[in-house]
Design a protein around this nucleic acid. Structure first.
Lengths: 236, 236
DNA sequence: TTGGGTACGTACTCGCGGTATGTGAATCTG
DNA sequence: CAGATTCACATACCGCGAGTACGTACCCAA
């Protein structure tokens, strides 16, 4: 039994033998194992239906280990959430590489997003349970740093390509709307009988909407000032 | 100490003083009282942080009563959910009364929806926790019967006004997208520093998008067939 | 009057999140 | 190289809260 000092070095060749304490196999990656198991269980059963006992059993450790690495059940969920999100935004960024034209980028990004949204973990952990478990504030903070940020870049490019020079708030508003649209589209894709056909429909619909915006831009139609809407009801 | 023993049950004329059993005051509406209290607590604290003991205490009954009327905690939540949704769709329907032009109806409906989405109960119970608690399938079933159905009517009217005659699936797709967009918009409104200004921004943005679609319609631009997108990748 | 159904109340169990504390091995210190 | 300290867990336990079993007062029909 090779009890080596830098246990982190043993990353290769993992002979998984039953009965052996996980700790001796690769103690440094206990945390990662916990997150992996938790992600799987959360995806399959949901947050509430998953007990920490199941998680630690799956990772072949005990609750002591879990509470050593995480603040609690919610902490584990956050770690799982971040991992799933990181993977997702990485995939989108990869797909986006090479595209230059903002409208093309938007479509490429949409396509990548529709792929990702078919991932059960992304569906359950990020979209469905994320907001409720993390709380809406934290959920938005996380999104900001990943997929939402990508959508924002796309929207900015597209709208600025249309020579609109819009305020931060309007950019934010458009981004929220498109992000919501894409999320909802993704959910509908995920529960469709034929996902590929569903993806095609969503692409068609959103491309159509984008075409509409582009036409407006080409015709020099200006984006109204939202403040105008307020004046007419400013006395109530 | 408000815990009364069975012997203390008062059967003669009772002054309406706090501390008497709720049952004797209006036993017929115990269920309603439970739902009301539950809705309030779910809104304020969320589903997980609300205990059934709090609910029954608020309604001045015991768990026996609750489990007589509902199947469990989830059952209570469903009842609360349905009530909040019923109120919401009622308000939208009311606002929609009188409008004829589909584009105008869409804007009116949007405005009404943006009002509703500022209601804390709707935010928390329907939007945030609804999907996670009910499960996505049940959540969609419920939505189908209320606000989603309204959006679908609006989308159908608008798109058919554009002389597109689209398939049920494309209608469904467009509706999902718009519903998602409006939900997301609603959430951004609900957490905005100045809700009224946020509403104005959302209205501006969506109206702009609708204008784009309308322009396409006026110019006779056709909606592509989603099946076209599939062919080019049909061999893999 | 009595039997059954309704509308609760009471008392209990048990799973699960969280905590307090123990422990062997690795690391640091003199 | 012996202690001291810290790390990375393991073990044992607690309390809260959802759900259940069962009892009971009231109402109505026959």
């Amino acid at each position: 039994m090779p009890t080596r000092s830098p246990a982190e070095k043993i990353r290769s060749t993992i002979p998984k033998v039953a009965g052996v304490s996980r700790r001796q196999q690769y103690s440094a990656s206990t945390k990662r194992a916990l997150v992996d198991v938790a992600t799987r269980l959360f995806t399959e059963q949901g947050y509430a239906a998953t007990s920490l006992d199941q998680v630690v059993a799956g990772a072949r450790v005990t609750k002591g280990a879990l509470y050593h690495h995480f603040s609690g059940k919610q902490g584990v969920f956050e770690a799982a959430f971040e991992q799933v999100e990181r993977d997702a935004s990485k995939r989108i960024r990869k797909a986006l590489r090479g595209s230059r034209d903002p409208w093309e980028k938007a479509l490429i990004g949409l396509r990548a997003f529709l792929e990702i949204v078919q991932d059960p973990s992304y569906q359950r952990v990020v979209i469905q349970e994320g907001p409720a478990i993390l709380g809406y504030e934290r959920f938005r903070e996380q999104e900001e740093r990943s997929s939402y940020g990508l959508v924002q870049d796309m929207v900015r490019d597209v709208l600025e390509d249309s020579t609109y020079d819009l305020s931060e708030e309007m950019l934010e508003t458009f981004t929220r709307i498109f992000f919501g649209a894409m999320s909802a589209a993704g959910e509908s894709v995920s529960s469709a009988a034929d996902p590929r056909l569903a993806v095609a429909r969503v692409e068609t619909a959103i491309a159509f909407i984008l075409t509409g915006l582009r036409t407006l831009a080409d015709n020099g139609v200006e984006l109204p000032d939202p403040a105008d809407l307020l004046e007419q009801t400013d006395d109530e």
